[in-house]
């Protein structure tokens, strides 16, 4: 845990509640991005990530400093996202806008930034956009453990040991989840991969 985090946490525990704002400022972008990758909607991601900070504050007395504060916070975020996904199982938000009934803007469709290639013809660009949406769909269809491992490792770039700490399992288990997730995605994206020559 960084010295700044430790100092802020110590101050909060001693009654200086305002110091908690430092932690919120420092980690809100990360918490939002993790929540968005699970929920596929910025508004829901904001609600869940804010709830995670409030949970973290209320449980701060339990935080022993054995792991990084961010790891502990992400664990709370991921668990809250899992709960939210269970509650909304009938309309998985990762694939919001794809076949759903909710009014979702184009910005909310898909998890990933679409990069336009001016040199590519319109048909090729449309195919790549479709691939992006299919990847979002396929990630949303993964079992929750595989989805968590894949998103945290491949999308958020966290090392395997930190993913294991967040998921509270062994590194080998995380590797297995990531491998299986990748296999599932390969099968789901096969038609579009052939177009890309993969």
């Amino acid at each position: 845990m960084s010295g700044r985090d430790a100092q802020a946490i110590q101050a909060v525990l001693q009654g200086d509640v305002d110091r908690f704002a430092e932690l919120v400022d420092r980690y809100q972008d990360h918490a939002l991005r993790v929540a968005f990758s699970f929920l596929g909607n910025h508004e829901d991601a904001k609600d869940v990530s804010q709830e995670a900070f409030i949970h973290a504050y209320r449980s701060l007395g339990q935080f022993r400093g054995g792991a990084k504060f961010s790891t502990w916070l992400y664990r709370i975020v991921v668990n809250l996202c899992k709960d939210a996904c269970k509650r909304r199982a009938r309309r998985p938000l990762v694939v919001a806008g794809v076949g759903g009934t909710d009014a979702v803007s184009d910005e909310d469709i898909g998890l990933f930034v679409e990069v336009e290639d001016p040199a590519a013809d319109p048909a090729r660009q449309a195919s790549r956009r479709e691939l992006s949406r299919r990847l979002t769909d396929a990630i949303g269809a993964l079992p929750m453990n595989q989805r968590s491992a894949f998103l945290l490792h491949h999308v958020h770039g966290l090392p395997l040991d930190e993913v294991a700490a967040i998921m509270q399992c062994r590194v080998g288990t995380v590797k297995s989840h990531v491998f299986r997730a990748t296999q599932h995605l390969r099968v789901a994206l096969d038609p579009w991969l052939m177009q890309e020559g993969i």
């Binding site: 525990l13 400022d25 972008d29 990758s37 910025h42 904001k46 409030i54 209320r58 910005e107 990933f112």
Partner: peptide, 30 residues
């Protein structure tokens, strides 16, 4: 090449203020 979409239209200061508003209405963590 296709990073995750960033938070759109979220005011960071307001986000923090909302969290702190709820934090201060609750009990102390200790």
């Amino acid at each position: 090449r296709h990073p995750l979409k960033g938070p759109a239209g979220i005011d960071r200061a307001r986000y923090t203020a909302e969290v702190m508003g709820q934090v201060k209405t609750g009990l102390r963590p200790a």
